[in-house]
Design a binder for these strands. Sequence first.
RNA 1: UGUCCAAUGGUGUAACGGUAGCACUACAGUUUUUGGUACUGUCUGUCUUGGUUCGAAUCCAGGUUGGACAACCA
Length: 539
Amino acid sequence: MNFIEEIIEKDLANGKNGSKVHTRFPPEPNGYLHIGHAKSICLNFGIAKKYNGLCNLRFDDTNPVKEDVEYVDSIKEDIQWLGFQWAEEHYASDYFDQLYEWAEQLIQEGLAYVDDQTQEEISAGRGVPTKPGTESPYRNRSIEENLDLFRRMKAGEFPDGSRVLRAKIGMDSPNMHMRDPIMYRILHAHHHRTGDKWNIYPMYDFAHGQSDSIEGITHSICTLEFEVHRPLYDWFCEALKIHHPQQIEFARLNLNYTIMSKRKLMKLVQDKHVMGWDDPRMPTICGLRRRGYTPASVRNFAETVGIAKRDNIIDVSLLEFCAREDLNKVATRTMAVLDPVKLIIDNYEGEEMLNAVNNPENPEAGTRPIPFTKELWMERADFREVADKKFYRLTIGGEVRLKYAYIIKCTHIDKDADGNITAIHATYDPETKSGMPLSNRKVKATIHWVSAQHAKKAEIRLFERLFLKSDPDDCEEGQTFLDSLNPNSLTIQDGWIEEGLTLDNPERHYQFERIGYFCIDRDSTADKIVFNKTVGLKQ
RNA sequence: UGUCCAAUGGUGUAACGGUAGCACUACAGUUUUUGGUACUGUCUGUCUUGGUUCGAAUCCAGGUUGGACAACCA
């Protein structure tokens, strides 16, 4: 049980909020969701589920210049893909009328005023954390003048940036956010939902807590950087005398070799360092999905990293573990040769069908027939002319088992003029066919293969981490995170796959035996299937 | 020279005044027709100095270190 659940259980026991739990996930629709958001989604929806409560989806759309419907659609899709369904769908913009009324109310009570200072003047007047700020010369306008000005701001009479509405709290708080914070700014911008209705838009601090309040949120869970906003969150709830949800902060997720800033992810997309927001190398939820992560693996990851208030950097190997853990249970096994070399069984003639297991972890997945012939493709790395003690695959004179087939012995190899191996020759032992008594003979290894005449060509996309540095943001002077981009993060090559592996198959996740987990990419065509490598098998 | 928050193995996270546990990583071993899986084992930890107490990771005080805060962003 994490510390937030402890707080909730205490509240429940005390009968606070009528012993109800209502959370919300409040994304700003200005980018795609990433794995860090997944942690928050799992937390908020998970808590609602655990305590028989509700979780809303609310778009924090108070800044029309940055937001777009493209993002609200993708956000909804990602949440649902993760396996969650919100109780209510809301938008902060739905509350603009109410928010405006509340702003007037605060003006009436002498708790807010219109400030005509420029942005620079306001910034200078705010002071620095160690020293108090100075009051605005417009701070003590009459209520009537404030009301008049604010209404005219709303009516669109003033240009952008010419005036703001500020809360009248004080200029000497050690917390900068409490020094007469801005509530409304003038923005003659088109909003993706309210259109051109508004010429003024509320700031986060004058929208978020109130939105929580309107929705009857009991526990408003957010990340640590909002800790300094909490006094203001509380102040507005108190001043407005409205339902007061409890804000609780937790540490956001950080992953090594990864960036999580929406701005920087956007940069990668815009500058075409990746194929898009859903590039399999991206830490976005849609990227992970395209990479072949299952919803269960992402959920399990979020559960495993835990919730606390201390800064953390999670090792990406934990994410990969979660992928393997789930994929091992569900991925259909198949054989594929990614770096092929011809294997010729000189004493074999004809063709026969062998039986292959679809998933040793799940007998119900059944078996499939695979063709065996004289000429096969095998993995180049499964043979070595000179082998050290640690190498226990095929060598000249050595024996190895062909999975589901026979034990073979390498006799000799063919090379081209440059010394590259062009073919490996072997003989098979007919008595060692899979299932026969002699097939149990101990050999150094079992390797995978595909029949050369039957195998189909497929495009294989291999991924490495996007960044070379554990902390891509830890840059030398004059450099940026872009300088630590891994030039080899994407490798595209052709491989040979079993002929039975088609686009019609309902399965999306595969394990290429002895190699790793792969999934079918949406770039696949009838002519050529494209596979993304999700993660390799543990070595 | 400010305020707030945090500090437990390599990485995370438990233990709520009474045996420092779990997961990942790494490394061994057993099983295995995947160098996978499963199972077993090994390694490494309470930031520091005081105090309270029979007893402190836990409570208190100081220090140190890290983070957040000075957008008309969220």
